[in-house]
Design a protein around this nucleic acid. Structure first.
Lengths: 142, 142
DNA sequence: TACGCGCTTAGAGCGCGCTCTAAGTCAAGG
DNA sequence: CCTTGACTTAGAGCGCGCTCTAAGCGCGTA
């Protein structure tokens, strides 16, 4: 009837439930999505594009309210580009920290699994260099 | 009065609030911590050790109930080592997936920031190879 | 025109992981 | 002894991010 995706089409295209899409709109993460004469949402390409990016921000743990702030800046036009860039740069720092944190934890996990493998295969109590290394990693901050 | 750390000492040693330490115990993430005659908790080395590791699991997003399961297996003795190992291996898969997810998102973030830099420095609308690459990345699953 | 599914809204409910409160007990310094 | 502050408990409250409900309207097919 009008161009753009229905909410259920947008939902399956984006992997976000219709409930959540409506919630995002109410919460100000999205601009008001255009409607048909009957009041049904029709998501345009640009809406889907924006959503794809905002979904990435959410995936990396950016809080709803900061995503909203970014999205509002987009709506406010080109003169907000420096501000938007700053938000993204600050968030990049966070994401990089998250990755480092996970990698440190992964190392601990690997060592621990290593110990279990040794204990399981050789039936010995785990008192060796792995154990020591594990101690060290666990005592580090973070 | 007895050996072991007070709850506030354990709290600052671990970077976990006393409230949360008590909550973890109630929630079954920890074995019952030994008490003084007066009923005050005294964290032994082994309790602190275990906590350090469980905290790592939490940091990587393992849900409370799964951490509890792991912790219960530890209490159940050596014959649960295979089961514990399996939990950790399954979790490792999750953590590796998280890292990959974050890295993909980071790439998107970098490209977007790149575009903002271009727009800001040159005052041009962003229609170039970066934009295309960004489109591609955003349209990928995940 | 009638059926039935999908859309609409405002608002309630939920799962998670803490986080804090209230009322009382313990313990070390003056 | 008395104060002061940290400790104890059970349980309430909270912030987040959805997730679902109820009641009603839109719309494509027969």
């Amino acid at each position: 009837m009008q161009d753009g995706l229905t909410i259920s089409d947008a939902s399956s295209a984006l992997g976000i439930t219709a409930h959540t899409l409506r919630y995002y709109e109410r919460a100000g993460l999205l601009p008001p999505i255009p409607r048909t004469d009957g009041g049904l949402r029709r998501y345009r390409d640009e809406d889907v594009q924006l959503l794809r990016f905002l979904a990435k921000l959410r995936l990396t743990g950016m809080p709803i309210r900061q995503v909203r702030k970014y999205s509002e800046l987009v709506r406010d036009g080109d003169h907000t580009m420096a501000a938007r860039r700053q938000i993204l740069e600050e968030h990049r720092v966070e994401v990089e920290a998250q990755i480092r944190q996970l990698q440190r934890s992964l190392e601990v996990l690997n060592l621990k699994i290593n110990l279990y493998e040794q204990g399981w295969v050789h039936g010995i109590s785990p008192t060796n260099e792995c154990t020591e290394k594990l101690q060290c990693l666990l005592e580090e901050k973070g």
